[in-house]
Structures are given as structure tokens and as C-alpha cells.
């Protein structure tokens, strides 16, 4: 009996140690990942810590995670501690503390919640840790505590959607706008960018703006109401492809697809397919791989003590229906 107990406890220990070695501590000579060429890490390498939003939740985030890991492994001058908050804001705050305890050179945060993370960012700054925000900006009240933001320029994305709309309508017509979830910086910036360009353009009138909350079903309802309310609609601007597809569903049901051009400010896989079918006129490509490498570059520049722009944007090219085949279909 006693021997069995001992055996069982030892077995438990074995399970533990196996599990640990199996997934690997951040040793410099860790076994290579499939694609990236691993490089021996310089003893003076910078230690960069990142806490991501929710890696398993969608392909964008999964691709970002993989790209970030590969970028870290392929460089000699950086060691990474790569964590995932799994969508739990409390866990993300805990991870920021754990990164501080390990004395990282720079902390990168992909905020689960742009407001709730502000106190943690404030604490990190107070203890001398530079923080870079990636992908989605935090609430403005936190700007004074961070070094800057690496990600897409949402205002440019909104402007691009507006420019594509002007081309599609030959500079004349009536459009409606479906924006993202109010209260989120991304939603407001994409709307602002669109309006910056559209007011300059002669002959295009924005009839009305309604929130679609990044949600396809909600956007479909919003579009159904627009179609009832306005007899003449020439264009629809949705802040991302998910909402654009919702709007397209409503337009097709009403049988008005031929009369209406749709543009969006961020391309998803479903939007790519809609573009192949000719239903979506234009969108904007945002690559998770570029998103990840841009964040790492910015963090390294900060670690080296270089001056960096607060808004450290990466390129997000226009995609119009005629050229869609030159682009890869987004994985998300």
C-alpha cells in the first residue's frame, strides 16, 4: 500500500516534469520551430515580454502569435517571453506584473480591454518599464503612461475606404455608414478618416451613420432599416468586412445589389470571397504577420533607447475588386 502511494506520487511528479520539458522553457538553444531559422541568442540580448489578447480565438490572433514567435526565434539580439491572456483582463494584469518581476526590457500589450488595462500600464510606467501597445489602442487616459502604439492606422484605413467610394461612384451619390462599436478608438478613428475625405469630395452626401457594433447580424438589421428609410442609396461604408457582409446580405434580400457599391476599412476572408463575387467593391488589407513584426521592431527600437514615433504604423494597402486576385485571402 505504502509503496503504491509512493509510486503514484512519483508518477505525478513525472507527469509534471514531462509536461514542463515538453513545452519548453525559454532556453536559448530551444529546439527549432518548423520554419524560422533559430539563431544563437546573444548574451546581451534584449528581453521582450508580450501579453496577447486571446490567441486561440480567431485566425488573425493565431497567425500573429506564430509570426511573433518566429520573428523572435530568427533574431540573435532578442529573447521573448510570449504570453496569452486568453481574453481575461485580470489574467492580463497578472501577466504584466509577472513580466515586471522578470525584469523585461520592454512590455508589449495587446489589450483585452483598453480601459481596464490603464491602471496596470500606469503601474508599469511608475516602476520604469516602457510599454508598447499593439494592434488596438488603449483608452486615451492611458496615453501618458505608454511609449507608443504599434498597429494599423485606422484613420488611413477610413480614408482609403472613402477614396475607393469616391472612385466607385464617380464622385457623386448618397451613402450610408455602418460604424464599429462606439466607445472603441478603432471604431471612431475609422469613421473620422472616412469623413475627412468625404467632406472634401464634391457631390457625395453621407445620409446617416449607425453603429453595427462589429457584429454581422446587427449590421444586417441596420442596413435593412436604411433600405426602408431611403429610396436612393448609392453606397455603403462599413468599418470592417464582417459588417460589410451583413450589409450585403440585406442589400441582396432587397434586390438592390446592382445599384449600391459597398466599401470597407478592413479585409476579412468572407469579404475577400464577397469581392470575388463582385459584391464588395473595395477593402483594406491588414496583415497579422506585419502587425506582429512591426510591434517587435518598435519594442526593440525602444529597448535600444532610440526615439520612436508615438504612432508606429504599418502599411495597410487598398484592395479593389479588380485587383483582388493579386492579394492573398486573409486567414481570418
Amino acid at each position: 500500500m505504502k509503496k503504491r502511494t509512493l509510486a503514484l506520487l512519483l508518477a505525478g511528479l513525472l507527469v509534471l516534469s514531462l509536461a514542463f520539458t515538453g513545452c519548453g522553457a525559454p532556453e536559448p538553444d530551444a529546439p527549432p520551430a518548423d520554419e524560422a531559422e533559430p539563431v544563437d541568442v546573444d548574451p546581451d540580448a534584449f528581453l521582450i515580454g508580450i501579453t496577447q489578447n486571446n490567441v486561440g480565438i480567431d485566425s488573425y490572433q493565431t497567425t500573429y502569435d506564430r509570426a511573433f514567435r518566429e520573428a523572435v526565434e530568427s533574431r540573435a539580439d532578442v529573447e521573448g517571453i510570449i504570453l496569452d491572456a486568453a481574453g481575461d483582463v485580470m489574467r492580463q494584469i497578472n501577466q504584466v506584473e509577472d513580466l515586471m518581476a522578470q525584469g523585461v526590457d520592454v512590455i508589449i500589450i495587446w489589450p483585452v480591454d483598453g480601459t481596464a488595462i490603464v491602471p496596470a500600464v500606469e503601474k508599469a510606467q511608475a516602476e520604469g518599464f516602457p510599454v508598447v501597445i499593439t494592434n488596438s489602442p488603449i483608452d486615451e487616459s492611458g496615453y501618458e503612461f505608454i511609449v507608443g502604439f504599434s498597429g494599423p492606422d485606422n484613420i488611413i484605413q477610413g480614408r482609403y475606404a472613402a477614396e475607393m467610394m469616391i472612385d466607385a461612384l464617380d464622385g457623386e451619390g448618397k451613402v450610408v455608414e455602418i460604424m464599429g462599436l462606439p466607445g472603441y478608438v478603432t471604431a471612431h478613428q475609422r469613421s473620422d478618416g472616412f469623413h475627412e475625405v468625404i467632406t472634401d469630395a464634391t457631390g457625395i452626401e453621407v445620409l446617416e451613420t449607425q453603429p453595427g457594433d462589429w457584429n454581422r447580424e446587427k449590421s444586417q438589421q441596420v442596413m435593412e432599416n436604411f433600405l426602408l428609410k431611403y429610396d436612393e442609396i448609392d453606397g455603403v461604408y462599413a468599418a470592417d468586412d464582417n459588417m460589410a457582409v451583413g450589409a450585403i446580405n440585406a442589400i441582396k434580400e432587397a434586390g438592390r445589389m446592382d445599384a449600391i457599391k459597398v466599401t470597407s476599412a478592413c479585409m476579412f476572408g468572407d469579404g475577400y470571397d464577397a469581392m470575388l463575387r463582385g459584391e464588395l467593391h473595395g477593402s483594406v488589407e491588414q496583415s497579422p504577420i506585419v502587425d506582429a513584426t512591426n510591434a517587435l521592431e518598435m519594442a526593440l527600437a525602444v529597448a535600444r533607447g532610440e526615439e520612436v514615433d508615438f504612432w508606429y504604423y504599418f502599411e495597410t494597402p487598398k484592395v479593389i475588386v479588380e485587383e483582388v486576385e493579386n492579394f492573398e485571402k486573409p486567414v481570418f
Binding site: A19, F20, G22, C23, G24, A25, P26, V55, G56, G80, I81, I82, L83, D84, A85, A86, N94, Q95, D98, L99, A101, Q102
Partner: peptide, 12 residues
Amino acid sequence: NGMNLLNVHAYY
């Protein structure tokens, strides 16, 4: 906490 220190993926 230990998993965070050891840089282990949340799934594990």
C-alpha cells in the same frame, strides 16, 4: 504564475 515565468503557453 510559474507558467508565465517559464514562458509556457496558456494551453499547457
